[in-house]
Design a protein around this nucleic acid. Structure first.
Length: 462
RNA sequence: GGUGGAGUGGCCGAGAGGCGAGGCUCGGGACUGCAAAUCCCGCUACACGGGUUCAAAUCCCGUCUCCACCUCCA
């Protein structure tokens, strides 16, 4: 069985076939860095990170491009609002995104191109579009793409040109058709601009992705991803620009659904509490990742703090098993056939969660029976799955924080608690349960949980 | 107006003609001095009305409700 993925362009699940055997080129629309990342932004990052990890595990050499759009209307507005240069605003939020990606163990892209670094490529693309007769400069400094000349325009979103409302992104009177969109915008006083053969100006919103995808992935590449809300206009316009230039562009289009709050798309009911940085005050990065990755990428994820907390507790159960299992022997992550089948089926992560539940139950039973091979078997399968999901608790990305607590401090703590536990065991042995419970209460009041197991008591920080 | 999606048990969340995903909560039980952890059992759901079929959550027709996109969107 091989990998199948849902292609928005054909609205069906197709067997994935790389253009070049063994290699996959992916372009993911990254952030327009104009505000702090919220969990919707980062869900997209996590979903496509899972795709990337699965492709890597499947043996592909993956070239993953995720852009940063660092020049755009909203950034300019924000700059005025924050009373700071537009480039400082863009940099500030780009850092916030990078930090959020890092906290959630999203692999850094192979390359992360910024729009402002690719003005040359954008101008070259426009020149090509003008030459081929698809773009025109009406003389007001703007350049537009003439969408009516493209037979395939709007095939991704399945709309008809005449049903669309006119684009409101520029002076209507200069357009040949109100649906034509701006490739390039003539400069206005006080705004950043770059020189072009048609006068100074700045890029329109969609151009950068076409230009950068072409620069790093070539005329035709395997997968283009992004949020559902980018299908129109952003991705339609990318296709329009690229195909008008004569490029094949993306073969497979993948879109992640958004995070909703009370049934509504999150950006509508924006709350500061849904900013990644704020959520990370409540749960760890690995737990937030587990939560965001747990629903199928094409399903809406209805956010609530209750669901987040519940999901985090479920994850800690898995983590706790793996920690115990590690005491029985070396656990090597392994990919089971069932796991592979689920992932190959358009990344059926929810099915994977059901598999993990089964392995977890078997593993816990094996621990109570001290069946080392069964313990390691369950733990291996779970770790193999978690690795692909980017949620392996032993991943250095997550252990780095804990490692900063120096190991000799840990030894001191272990020694102190071991002493107390020994006292408690002695009390229990002489059936002095009052004293035993007093010791346990004292330890747990410090936030340490005591569990009595067949092989003696174990402690953990709760 | 156009286009697309959704409605599943107390909650979250899969599935897409047959033999009830899974998790959480709740109830019962095992283990335990008591806890904790863990395991076992239980709680039989698919918006509504028709239809097709031996068989429908799944297909068809109709209806209701909600959400999204139609040039700021992940």
């Amino acid at each position: 069985m091989s990998l199948s993925l849902y292609n928005t362009a054909t609205r069906s699940i197709e067997t994935f076939k790389a253009i070049t055997a063994g290699k996959v080129g992916i372009y993911l629309c990254g952030a327009t860095v104009q505000a702090e990342p919220h969990i919707g932004h980062i869900r997209s990052g996590v979903n496509f990170d899972i795709l990337r990890r699965w492709l890597i595990h499947s043996g592909y050499d993956v070239c993953f491009i995720r852009n940063v759009t660092d020049i755009d209307d909203k950034i300019l507005h924000k700059a005025v609002h924050e009373n700071s240069p537009w480039w400082a605003v863009a940099m500030k939020y780009e850092r916030a995104f990078t930090e959020a990606y890092r906290a959630l163990n999203v692999m850094p892209p192979t390359y992360e191109p910024r729009a402002t670094g690719h003005i040359t490529q954008m101008i070259a693309l426009i020149e090509r579009l003008v030459e081929r007769g698809y773009a025109y400069a009406p003389g007001n400094g703007d350049l537009y793409l003439e969408v009516r000349k493209l037979a395939s325009y709007l095939t991704l979103s399945g709309q008809k040109l005449d049903d669309l409302l006119p684009a409101g992104d520029a002076d209507e009177s200069m357009k040949r058709d109100p649906r034509d969109f701006a490739l390039w915008k003539g400069s206005k006083p006080g705004e950043p601009s770059w020189p072009t053969p048609w006068g100074d100006g700045r890029p329109g919103w969609h151009l950068e992705c076409s230009a950068m995808a072409h620069a790093y992935l070539g005329e035709e590449f395997d997968i283009h991803g992004g949020g559902l809300d980018l299908i129109f206009p952003h991705h339609e316009n990318e296709i329009a620009q690229s195909q008008a230039a004569g490029y094949g562009f993306a073969r497979v289009w993948m879109h992640n659904a958004w995070v909703t709050a009370s049934g509504e798309k999150m950006s509508k009911s924006l709350g500061n509490s849904l900013i990644v940085r704020e959520i990370l005050k409540r749960v760890r990065g690995i737990e937030l990742r587990w939560y965001l990755g747990s629903a199928h990428y094409r399903s809406m994820l209805e956010f609530s703090f209750e669901a987040l907390e519940e999901s985090a507790i479920a994850f800690r159960r898995i983590e706790s098993f793996l920690q115990r299992a590690a005491e029985y022997g070396e656990v090597k992550p392994a990919i089971s056939g069932e796991f592979k089948a689920a992932m190959d089926d358009d990344l059926a992560v929810p099915a994977v969660l059901a598999l993990i539940s089964g392995w977890l139950r078997a593993g816990n039973t094996a621990i109570s029976e001290a069946n080392t091979s069964a313990i390691c078997d369950a733990a291996s399968k779970i770790r193999g799955a978690l690795e692909v999901l980017g949620c392996d608790p032993f991943d250095a990305a997550f252990t780095a924080d804990q490692a900063s607590v120096s190991s000799n401090k840990k030894e001191v703590l272990d020694g102190l608690i071991a002493g107390l536990l020994q006292e408690r065991e002695e009390a229990r042995a002489r059936k002095d349960f009052a004293s035993a419970d007093r010791i346990r209460d004292r330890i747990s009041s410090l936030g340490i949980t005591i569990e009595d197991t067949a092989s003696g008591p174990r402690w953990s920080i709760s």
